[in-house]
Design a protein around this nucleic acid. Structure first.
Lengths: 162, 162
DNA sequence: TGCTGATGCGTTATGATATTACATACAATG
DNA sequence: CATTGTATGTAATATCATAACGCATCAGCA
């Protein structure tokens, strides 16, 4: 399972591993990992890309798991608030966390050509930004770091990219 | 004029200075700084906060400068693409650049209590993220860095905050 | 002058994203 | 079994954004 998500990997075990990890987390913290929530996470994990809420909703609807926007948004809120998934603000889309359970500040590398998204780490409270925040007296609680550019495949005109 | 925007400052001269700088930039690059574009920038500068496109449109409409969404969005596109303003993805809102003309990667400190936004600098291609991108073969072209937290005024229960 | 192309604006319509509000289901608990 | 809290179902609506078309203006030029 890769943290930097542009390479090939064993997708099936990657999905399974993440699901198990989330299950364990939910059990440990007495969170209700309901069918809808589970299914939404599975969809995100198996697609392994950023998906819009309505795109997820389409899948749920086909499966009879819900048909109105709040169903998808509520499940996504649960996943995002417990950090099992993240919202990519730049795309107004959601993506499964590639390392659930570990505390981290996710940072995303978003390909402007094929929309592939890889999750990396950032440490916004360090470096220039953290210094500026300190000086301003601003208390950073959470950060969104999203870099837009070209993924390795698209840089080489790889067929994997649409 | 402050770069970290939570403190008091000479607002009038701050607005004037930014407008002059943008005017000069437009003249130098043969960009059309039309009445609508100018007015939208003035609105953003004078409010000194992140505003939604429709909020800006309301002002334009009252002034007879345009009444339909594309008018506001086109002006904002112009301002954003030339970096005279920035989009705050987290808020789906726009804010005037506090130092137009200087090349920079803007980073925002967003107060979750009063929605005040300060612009700081970031250097996403350095640090952990830059390293991860390099290793992944990802070419960062542009980055969104937005930190959510509490501004100094709200930390102290300052009356300036709603 | 009159043509032509480029750019910006006006307007209608629609698409895409997200939330409010209220009703219902259902499991855990006393 | 009544109560409570959490999750879900559904209708309606709010909010954010763009497509597509036509017109106005203006610069460059024959």
């Amino acid at each position: 399972m890769d943290t930097i998500g542009f390479e090939q990997h064993d997708h099936k075990s990657c999905v399974q591993g993440a699901l198990s990890a989330v299950e364990a987390q939910c059990a440990a913290h007495k969170l209700q990992f309901t069918p809808v929530r589970r299914r939404v996470l599975e969809i995100l994990l198996s697609e392994h890309r950023a998906m819009g809420a309505y795109e997820i909703l389409d899948v749920l609807r086909d499966e009879g798991l819900g048909s109105q926007p709040p169903v998808a948004y509520r499940a996504l809120d649960f996943l995002v608030s417990h950090r099992f998934a993240h919202k990519v603000e730049r795309l107004n889309a959601f993506i499964a966390c590639t390392h659930p359970g570990q505390t981290h500040t996710p940072a995303f590398l978003i390909c402007r050509n094929c929309d592939a998204v890889a999750e990396a780490h950032a440490e916004p409270t360090r470096g220039i930004l953290g210094k500026a925040a300190d000086e301003a007296g601003f208390a950073i609680e959470q950060a969104v770091v999203e870099a837009v550019g070209l993924c390795p495949n698209c840089r080489e005109g790889h067929p994997a990219c649409a």
